[in-house]
Amino acid sequence: MKKKNNTRWYVYGIILVICLWQVWAMALHRPIIPAPWQVAGNFVQIFVPKLSVHVLYSVWRLVAGLSLAIAAGIPLGLCMGYFSQWDKVLAPVIYLIYPIPKVALLPVFMVLFGLGEESKILMIFFIVVFQVTVAVRDGVKEIPQETYYSLYSLGASKIAVFREILIPASLPKILTSLRVAMATAVSVLFFTETFGTQYGMGYFIMDAWMRVNYPEMYSGILALSITGLLLFGLIDYAETRLCRWL
C-alpha cells in the first residue's frame, strides 16, 4: 500500500521533470538543450554499446568509496558516541578536517595515490566518512540512559550493548547520513572522473561536451541521474528492511 503510493509519486515526479525540460527545449530551441525524446532515443541507442561501461566504472567507485566510509565511520562513530573519552580526543580533529572542501585536496590525493582508481575512491571515502561518523556519534548520544539500564542490570557485556542497542539505534542515522552524503559523493565523483581516466560518467560527459555531441552528453547526465536515483532507492529499501520498527 505504502510502497505503491511511493512508486506513483516517483512517476509523477519524472513526468513533471520531462514536461519542464520539453518546455524549456522548445522555448530556447538551440542544440545545447535537446528535447527529451531526442535524448531518450540516443540513450537507448548508446547505453549498451558505449555508456554502460562508464556507468559500471562510476558505480564501482561510488560503492567502493561508500563501503569504505561505512566500514570506518560506523565503528568510529559508535565508539565516539559511547565512550566520551574517544569523543573528547577525536571530535576536535574531525571538526578541523570536516569543513575543508575535500575536492581542494584532490591534487594531493593524485600525487599520493596516483591518477588511477585509488585516488578517486579515497576521495569519495574521505568526503563521506565524516558525515557518517558524526551522524552515528550523534545517534548514539541521543539514546536515552534508561535504554541502557535494562542491559546494565543484566550484567551485559560491552559487545551485547553494541549489538543490542548502539548498532540498531544508530542504523536510521547511518542511512540518513548516507543519503546526504550520496549527493555530494556523486558530484565529487563527476569531478574526479574528469582527470586521469578514460572511464566513468564524468569522463563520458566531458568527452561528449568536447565533441559537441549534446545528445550524448545528456545521455551521460541522464545515466548519472538514474544511477543516483537507484542508489537512493536502494538506501530507502535497506531502511524498510533493516529498520522495520520505524
Binding site: P144, E146, T147, Y149, S150, S153, L154, P168, C243, W245
Partner: peptide
C-alpha cells in the same frame, strides 16, 4: 530484573 519508568523495551526488537 529491572523495569525502568519507560519500561526499557528496545524499540528495534
Amino acid at each position: 530484573g529491572f523495569i525502568p519508568q519507560n519500561y526499557g523495551l528496545l524499540p528495534w526488537r
